[in-house]
Design a protein around this nucleic acid. Structure first.
Lengths: 304, 304
DNA sequence: TGATATAACATACAAATCGTTCATTTTTTA
DNA sequence: TAAAAAATGAACGATTTGTATGTTATATCA
């Protein structure tokens, strides 16, 4: 934390807030358009009144006003994934979509994969939100709004991915009836898209019968099931067994994962791969596509 | 990596997209035909809503939509709203997101309001999809995937709207417990945004108690409830009564609408306004903001 | 305190935009 | 139809902007 420098900002922070490049800020400082002070080492420090006066004079918009509200919490974005998670949770709690988006983009710029962002930032942020709800610090509407916000953030992130090749392997994902949680499924789509797959998240609460139809019609290489909630365990196990058999028949790998697959349920279900996290899903998909590239199309699934 | 967060465009990009010379764009800016913002150094920046509004007013068409990150034509354009609805339904059935997006943008560029697109294209397309499902022509997974696709289309459409002013009246929307249909709520958000409101769709399946908290915390001028499905009618009537009372207290207009409000249910619920369609919601919001503008802030709701 | 990672410095460079002028095309007017 | 007016497109050097580089300052942590 940088607590010594209240109310002064680095060129980078200022640049982020205004929405221009760092170089421009420095130029304007040197031109005299922006007044500033120097540290003993020669670093520029800008005061809040100066920045606000500047944007008033020039008629510019503050693209990220929150950057100036929280000087301690910014820099090139959050340094660590944990910090990013905290900030993201905070942004969701405040219903601040712009800030949520910025945090997510910062992580992207820092080079983190979709899987890491999903596993280390988004998922734990919601976990923390749930904890705070149990303690009465957070209302349900805040959590739900957070889901809406995150959905939009994820779709924005999707636009940063290169579109898959037409001949890329395809995957479809869904949650089964009784499981209304759509975010893990959506994040799964992003993870697979990032790896070059043609991934489609079909939606949540799909009856297993229609998923069978989907496998039959779309003939994907992978079917991933996100399981965040299991309504009736017996029905789930039954649905899983039928899906597994169908996938075998269609040379499709069935991947399951999610927080609801506890030690009691997991032994009873069948799958080609099980993943605790989205990173697992990504790793499996990557291994699979390497395998098929080496051996041509059509692969068994006993190997996995 | 393309990580642009603010979609503003330079005169050159705008020129390429419209198919005119860069000089013309600059002239139109200086003539006041195109509103724009200036950077500190005097470079012009144009926003997407401004550009789209301009081409609507002038009756020109986008030669190269892809320059503005808009969907390029991939099939026949629709002439009428009915045609668009048919094509949209077809695209959903095929799980073709690009096509859905293009149809929606065609309508948008043709000058149709969000409310009209929602009422005349999206809603009837899903109605038709439901009909075809009953006849066994369409699977559940296709309808669900259509919901996912439409969610993304709506989000993209949102980018074509002018961002609300900070002092604009605010509205929050949601669906109550037992109602998982989120699309009408989302479309409501777009309709209100188009009219200049600060609108937030909080999500679906919200318990009425947390909505009461939300009204208390966020203090909106309007709470709109989308009702596409009513689980327990008694509970719904009870929740509605409590929300109505709370809204009265907070000078907040309660607007309800949705296909589940049949003649049997409607007489039993209380509201400031009832709407069969999103056009109704828009009309009510517009009337309300005119009224408040004339009479200052703080308005009763008996008038509505 | 000292080692290490991150951020800021100064500088240079490439790309895009600015304002302006002028030739060309299109539209309006006589 | 011909002339006048208006709109458009292209070109120019000057300016602004963003990115990349190697070096120095600051912050963090043991």
């Amino acid at each position: 934390m940088n607590l010594k420098q209240h109310n002064t900002f680095s060129p980078r922070q200022t640049a982020r807030a205004i929405g221009v490049s760092e170089a421009s800020i420095k130029r304007w400082c040197d031109n005299g358009k922006l007044s500033y002070e120097k540290t003993v080492g020669g670093h520029r420090r800008l005061s809040l009144p100066v920045i606000l006066g500047f944007i008033q004079d020039q008629g510019i918009k503050l693209r990220q006003p929150e950057v100036l509200d929280l000087p301690a919490a910014v820099g090139p974005g959050a340094r660590t994934l944990e910090q990013a998670c905290d900030l993201y949770e905070q942004a969701l709690e405040q219903g601040d979509q712009a800030r949520s988006l910025q945090i997510a983009f910062d992580m992207r710029l820092a080079g983190h994969s979709m899987a890491v962002i999903a596993d280390k930032v988004v998922a734990p942020a919601f976990h923390a939100l749930g904890e705070r709800w149990q303690h009465g610090d957070v209302e349900v509407y805040q959590e739900r709004h957070g889901v809406e916000i995150t959905r939009r953030v994820l779709l924005r992130l999707k636009d940063t991915l290169v579109p898959p090749e037409p001949d890329a392997p395809s995957a479809i994902g869904a949650t089964l009836s009784g499981d209304p949680y759509c975010l893990p499924g959506l994040m799964g789509e992003l993870v697979l898209l990032e790896l070059g797959w043609q991934a489609k998240f079909l939606g949540s609460q799909l009856p297993h019968t229609t998923l069978e139809k989907a496998v039959h019609d779309l003939n994907p290489s992978v079917l991933w099931l996100s399981v965040s909630s299991v309504g009736d365990p017996e029905a789930f196990v039954e649905a899983n067994a039928r899906l597994y058999a169908l996938c075998l028949e269609h040379q499709c790998a069935l991947v399951v994962g999610g927080s609801a697959l506890t030690d009691q349920v997991r032994p009873r279900i069948k799958y080609a791969s099980f993943g605790d996290s989205l990173q697992h899903l990504g790793a499996f998909a990557q291994g699979l596509s390497v395998y098929t590239r080496q051996n041509g199309h059509g692969f068994g699934q006993a190997q996995f």
